[in-house]
Structures are given as C-alpha cells and as structure tokens.
Design a protein around this nucleic acid. Sequence first.
DNA 1: CTCTTTCGTCGAAACGCGTCGCTGAGTAGA
DNA 2: TCTACTCAGCGACGCGTTTCGACGAAAGAG
Lengths: 337, 337
Amino acid sequence: MATLAEVARHAGVSASTVSYVLSGKRSISEETRLRVENSIRELGYHPNAGARALASSRSHIIALMVPLRTDMYVPVMMEIAIAVATTARGFGHDVLLLTGEEGPEAVRRVAASGLADAMIVMDVELDDERVPLLRDSARPSVLIGLPGDPAGLTCVDLDFTATGALCADHLAQFGHKDVAVIGEAAAVYRRHTGFAERTLDGLRSRAREHGMRVIHRPCEGSYESTAGVLARVFEERPDTSALVVQNEAAVGPMLALLRQQGRAVPEDVSVVAICPDQVALQASVQLTSVAIPAQEMGRQAVELVMAKIEGREPAPVTLLPPRLTVRASTGPAPTAP
Amino acid sequence: MATLAEVARHAGVSASTVSYVLSGKRSISEETRLRVENSIRELGYHPNAGARALASSRSHIIALMVPLRTDMYVPVMMEIAIAVATTARGFGHDVLLLTGEEGPEAVRRVAASGLADAMIVMDVELDDERVPLLRDSARPSVLIGLPGDPAGLTCVDLDFTATGALCADHLAQFGHKDVAVIGEAAAVYRRHTGFAERTLDGLRSRAREHGMRVIHRPCEGSYESTAGVLARVFEERPDTSALVVQNEAAVGPMLALLRQQGRAVPEDVSVVAICPDQVALQASVQLTSVAIPAQEMGRQAVELVMAKIEGREPAPVTLLPPRLTVRASTGPAPTAP
DNA sequence: CTCTTTCGTCGAAACGCGTCGCTGAGTAGA
DNA sequence: TCTACTCAGCGACGCGTTTCGACGAAAGAG
C-alpha cells in the first residue's frame, strides 16, 4: 500500500503538499497539483482510513441502526438502508450496519470509540430507550420514526396522521360510510411504534368529520389470520364498503379472500392500501394506495445528519407529505340493494 | 473522551501496561490489572477506533456488499445481512454496508484504504466482475453464492443442485410423472446468477433417473404473470401433477389461482416450494418446502472470513445441505380418471 | 554466592495523516 | 528602495494506539 509520504517523494514535493492537494484546503499551483495527482494515480494511492480518522477525528462513517424484528415489512427497511448507503456515499461517507441486538449499548460503543461520526436510528418507538442516550450524546443523530418527545432530536418520518386523513377523504368522497382498517400485527401496537397509531388517529378524526364509522382490527398477515379478521369485520359491520390496509403481508391474502367471497373490488368493496408502490402494483388488483416513501426517508435522514455534522441545526421534525395514487381498487360506495 | 494515557495516569501505570491489560498479550499482575480495569470503568474509557486501526492495521470491520437489485427476494438478503452483523459482533467486529451501486470500485476502495479487514460479497453471478478483484486482493473475502470458477476463493451457498434433486426425489416417491418448475424472474436467468440454474440442473437430472418429465417457466412474481405462467403450464402439459416453485413472490398468487381453478392442493396438484420457512408457513396451504438457510449462510460466511483473517485457509467451497420439510402441500399423484 | 530465567512493567518508536506556523519568492504600492 | 502582502510549499508536531526491546526484581540453578 502506497502512503502519502511515498506519493510525495514520487512527485518531488513534501507530504503536506500532497495532503493539501487531496483536501483542497490551501491553494496549490496548477503544475504541482497535476504532478501530485499523477503520482497518486501511478502508485494507486488510497488514503489510509485509520490514519485519516485519527488525525482528523472524523471517520467518514455513519452508523445505521436497524431493528431485527420480523413483524415489520422487511423490504421497506432494506430500501431505506440502501438509500441511506447510497446517499451517504454521495457525501463521501460509508455506512456501518448495527442491529438492534446489541441494544442501547451499541449507541454508547460507537459514539465513544469514534467509530462513526453520526448515527441514524430506524424503527423508533414512542418511548425508546435509545432516545435519551442519543439526546445526550455529543455525536449527531437522526431518527427515522417519531418518538413521544422529539425535543432536542432530529426526526424524519412519513406524516402518518395526514396519511390516515388522506385515506378518509378519498373514501368519503366516494360516499363510503363504513370503513374497516386492517392493521399491522398486534405486537406493533403493543410496542407503541407510533406510526400505526398515528395513522389511526388521523383516519378516525377525519372520518368523524365526514360522518364515517371506523373499526380497526390488527392482523398478523398470514392467510389464516387475514381470513379471520375479514370474517369478523363483515360479521360485525355487514355494511362495510371500504377497507384501509396498513399491512403489506395481508394485501395478497385479503384480495384473494374477497374474490373467493364474491365481493368485487371496487364495486362491492373499495380498498386503499398504505404500502410501497411495488406492492400496490404487483397485487391482483391495481391498488389505490398511499406510498411509503422509503427511499426519500433514507435520503432525507442522511441529508439531515450531514447538516448536523457540518454544524447546522435542522428542524427537529421533518414529516414527509403523503401522496395518494388512485388506481383500480376504489370507487363509489354501493347503493343499498 | 478519555484516552489510554489518562487511564494510565489514573491507575498509576504506563500507557503500555494499560494496552496490555486490554489486549492480554502480555502477563499482568492480578493487582495492577484490577486497578487498571477499575480506572477504565471509572473514566468510561473506550479505545479510539481510528488510533487502534492505525497502530494495529486492523480495523475490526468487515465489509458486506449487498446487491441493489429488486428482482431477488429481499427478506432473504436482509436476513443474511443481519446474521452477518450479529455473528461478526460475536467476533468483536462491525459490518460496513456496501451497495452494489459503486460496483467493483468499492472493492478496490475498501481494500486499499484499510477501511475493512475483509469482505463478504452477496449475490455473486457466474461470471462476476468483482471476482478477479477479490482473488487478487490481499484482503480475505468470502462469497455468498457460487461463481463459475471458485478456484482461489472461499464460497458459501446452499447446495442448490442437491435441492433440485431432493425435490425430484420427493415427488417421484409420490408417483408424479409430470412436473413443472415455476422459476425466478427471467432476468435472474439472463444474469446467470447460478443458483437458479443449479436447482434446475439438479432437478432435471434426477427427474430423468426417475422417468419424470420436467418443464420450466420463469415467472415475474406478480399476480398477472403468475396467472399467465400457470395457464401455459396446464395448456402445454395438462397432466402436470406437481409444481416446484422457486420464487417467493409467486407463492401467494399461485395458491390463490389454483384454488380459483378448482385444483385442490395436494389432491390434484402437489406443490413443493424452495423458500424461507416463514413463507412456507404463512401461505394459505402449509407448504412442503426446502428452506433457504439464510441465517446459516450469513453465520458461515463470517466464520469463514474470520478464519481467513486469522491466517487459516478454509475449503474453497462450502455447500450447505438442503433440508426438505414435508407439510400439507404434497401427496400422491392423482390416478387417471 | 553468582549466573541465568522469568515475570511485570516501562519508555520509545512507529503507524499515516492533518494542520499550524513559517519562509522565500514574487508583486504591488508608495 | 522599502514595506506590505499574497502565494506555494515545507517542516514539525500531534492524534491515540500497539508493539518491541530493555530493565529491575524475584526466583531458580549450579
């Protein structure tokens, strides 16, 4: 491995000159700059990450803490992670993958060792034990998700309250009166992950304004459990004419079951999904849906964290506006027979 | 942040002594060791990662290169990544997340900068452009997947040839004569990812021994395309009595379609899936399946890479034996009407 | 009682880079 | 001609560890 000193010797300049060529923090004559750049290329020089981190106390690494639960829809997590990684590369940073396994201790470890310059934490719960650590830490951090008290933090998330409201508006506009929400797995609510509750709140309060009735049932996402939930819904509210689904795994089974039961979509039942566009498009019916902007969330998180690294102090909460795409699964409420 | 020197002063010893306490590379008296450990705890000392990397030329970081394609089943990728991360932590290492985006250049960059001590590469193609780089690199690496020529490399993968054979055996045993394989998306075969082809090879050659006929159709995984594939299969081979599915996304649609068409599983059609157990269990019929041992692959990859870091030279190819779990979706071939 | 080992500890030299202060040459203004 | 200033480049130091050789004391061998 070539070192700075070797590059300097090869180019006939001092080591500091090479360093300044690399960082651009002082002016360098065109001529020597070219000579140095040439030597760098010839020797295949790459700066040593450890030395650079030691000298500058900047590792150019961002830690990303992903949950290791299985009850969340994994592709969204992955899409966020990939967006974080590629965006970070655009800022000259790499991404360190931390799993929730280690728990809050990981926060301490990474911060104290200077392994990472900053941290992005996914899947934040309303009352998350990592939050106080992050708030007190000297290192910048950004949360994806919204904790109970975002004071002193920086958070990004989809505006799930608005998402719920948007679904309500769309269905109200078609004259629906009875709406059922097929929700996430029960564990998600028990854990108070926030986003699921916020969706419900937004939907319920807007539904009230529109004079719609709402019932909500968690759903584990398997075929069996989806069948059970649907059966209950139509037993308890036979006039249900619209379903809002916030559960990617349940989408496929639900559509299959509706077809089986002879309920046409959208003539008998309208369906709005809250899911990535890909899921909405791959389903057996093109679903009207509010997209989960996974890439956008990852990108934003990195931009916010970079801003903090550079000393700026962004707004504590960034909520991405939801967008509803109308497809083939929603239509006017059926008129009474 | 406390430093080694501060710990040393606090404990009344030299810095090198503290270092040896930490590493255990020289004997230290019980008494001073306790004193040092106490100071470490009191000062909340964590070694600086950059300095450690510089001095020891070991970063304790393993790079993990994940593909950024969308035509692979994402949860498997994620499960492998998480298994890699947690296993690596067990060895005192962290994981750096690289996306395929940067391409082969990422290999060079990470290796040359000493950012990572070693590398794990996922989703290897038969003729992968990263492979020559890895072979020539001084840093250890492990591939998950099998390239065309594994000489000079270390690879882990499920034994997909045996997987195909296992499916053939299981179906032959039930007297099936006409088997259709619902495969991955066409792009996967075009790209020569290897595993899909190997499954087919294994299945075909064993099927020949059993006197079974096999047809194979790629499938994009959406409801539409699954419907198309199924229709073609039963048109072209009306006597098809068994399906082997190697496509997680197609599982749900396929079962829904079979039900719609009045084909009972397993009385009319047997189904064997090659997929994670979770998918096999969440489907509307409990599927007889060969599991994709994602966790095991991640774990193995880390163990192999650690062996190489420590100077051992493991076998070039590690193939995990497939295991078929019999559930409710396979049974005797229907007798002629 | 001396000579060699072993044990526990120390000091100093890397490791490769970033950064500060300085210098000498050149330029411009007076 | 002298000062004031800018521009390019240099040398030296520091970042926090690891590691090697050395050293004194205690222990064992003859």
